[in-house]
Design a protein around this nucleic acid. Sequence first.
DNA 1: GTGAAAGCGCTAACAA
DNA 2: TTGTTAGCGCTTTCAC
Lengths: 341, 341
Amino acid sequence: MKSTSSRARPTIREVAALSDTSIKTVSRVINGVSTVDPILVKRVESAIKKLNYRPNATAGSLRRVNGRTNTIGILLKDIANPFSSALYRAFENLARVQGIDVIAGSMDEQPEREVELIATFIARRVDGLIIVPTTIDHGYLKTERKSGMPFVFIDRPPNNFIADTVVATNKKSARQATEHLINFGHKRIAYLGDNQEIYTAEQRFGGYQEALKAAGIKIDNRYIHHGVENKEEIQKFTSELFALKDRPTAIFSSQNFVTVEVLRALRQAKLEKTIALVGFDDLDFADLVNPGITLVTQDISKMAHVAAELLFARLAGKKTPAELHEIETIFTQRGSGEIKA
Amino acid sequence: MKSTSSRARPTIREVAALSDTSIKTVSRVINGVSTVDPILVKRVESAIKKLNYRPNATAGSLRRVNGRTNTIGILLKDIANPFSSALYRAFENLARVQGIDVIAGSMDEQPEREVELIATFIARRVDGLIIVPTTIDHGYLKTERKSGMPFVFIDRPPNNFIADTVVATNKKSARQATEHLINFGHKRIAYLGDNQEIYTAEQRFGGYQEALKAAGIKIDNRYIHHGVENKEEIQKFTSELFALKDRPTAIFSSQNFVTVEVLRALRQAKLEKTIALVGFDDLDFADLVNPGITLVTQDISKMAHVAAELLFARLAGKKTPAELHEIETIFTQRGSGEIKA
DNA sequence: GTGAAAGCGCTAACAA
DNA sequence: TTGTTAGCGCTTTCAC
């Protein structure tokens, strides 16, 4: 037998030697197999304590029959964004009760970063992957699926790849939000949102358009802005908007940080009580400003639950076709959306 | 040789067979060893592509000479809290450039959860650990250090355990914030903060006390509240506070979510322009309410940088005594803290 | 420059 | 119930 190095971590072999039994018995004790003599269990446990032995989980999964690492990976837009971190936390809670750990990565909408992170996670042999995808052809995942790795997409569906997907009712909810403004007499309604290549932005803009069309309101491109790279861009667009003779009487903002910038611009122009505002996504201070901000909120907890259940079911062997789940949103009126035209 | 199962992932052995070379050469190609014949490199690379081979990182680290997994663990209070997620993101960025992955866990101030998560992370053989500790005796980590695992504590120091620590200048900054209120003529200044067993709360309360003492103001316990389990509790305390005949003319709030609740209470009582307010921690809407909220903000990015550098230095073998770094905060006046008594 | 053999720490299979 | 042996997929050692 090898000499016990005092620097390195003790291994299962050293525990077996100290407790005068075999490594297999130690393995049984570690894994809580009930058929071990209680006396041996005691001996092994005291040896573990004495040596401060910590089983090596990565070594264990190497030979394990299903090769599971009890880890899932989650790819987010940006963990520092409240939507992402709330999603992450929801998954953390759901995974923990299954004894599963979560590893995460932020992609910042960069496709090459998505590919890179997926490669990293596969190299770590995660059991499954939850993905808020970037705008990219996901065909490259097809070969990956052959190895049995389950994927669940959340917030946006994949492109050119079929997999379980959980999204909010983006189009329908955006339409309802816009109709809400129309019901308050608005006809000149501005739209600000992200690049239309992004699924959620495209859907929400679609809902906005549907509402206007249904109400017989012509779409005016001067009121519409896609692509919100940075705050300055939003400030520039809104200041031009507010300067128009026939400026809009209401604004629909299709994303949380866009709403924040729009609000900032409205307050600077002292128009926050004049121009109506409805936003998509939650803001934790929505009720703290005056007027409060009327918002369409995604049910993040529900989305995470549905996605997690799907993933766990796939891990448990569920073989049915990929499912698409649309989760209802929550609409909360707080004042900004109820300003009349 | 074993037969190639079409279901399982290909291994290095199958790549070697297909490229008609040895597994050692494949290993060299994967790891970018330069001494391989370019022709062999080509053959191996095309076999990798053909088989869609993905190296197993966990298997690799098992035999690797330093045993590194290129993973660090980070233990947070709650990843859904903006302070935590900003920290996480900062570490993610810093680790990525070193080719290191980050795994995280939320502890919700529960000591048993801390112990559990540390055990999990050690079982995964993380190379190092960044910890926002709960209130617990960290003596149990002493045995762990013998195995060479570096620990860096952030936001709060460990108890009964010496390790690198990065904190904000909590006491000094709280004192300055309180002095700021005193300079605006306030003598009745309320304090709301977390349980004093929590280091940051205790330090910040200490700074508050120092400022009052230095100004010759007697501390009035009716104005002080420790322990902020839930929102209702804060609402209850503030409503009692506002009902006092000699109610405070200013409030110092020692934590982000406490400030939000205080603000909510002030607005409900229509006192937000009457009672001054200074808060510790950042709020992303500080400039969007009226008056804007005067805040002491921690330099999260700097804290993460310093902590990460410490950790990487320890991983690189730095053996000097444990260091304590105090990072300066940023004070931003926005109106709420400049209301006169 | 290349490869055969050993072994990392653990679990599976099977024998005792 | 317990232990022995093989082997997970890779890196290391060392000989060629």
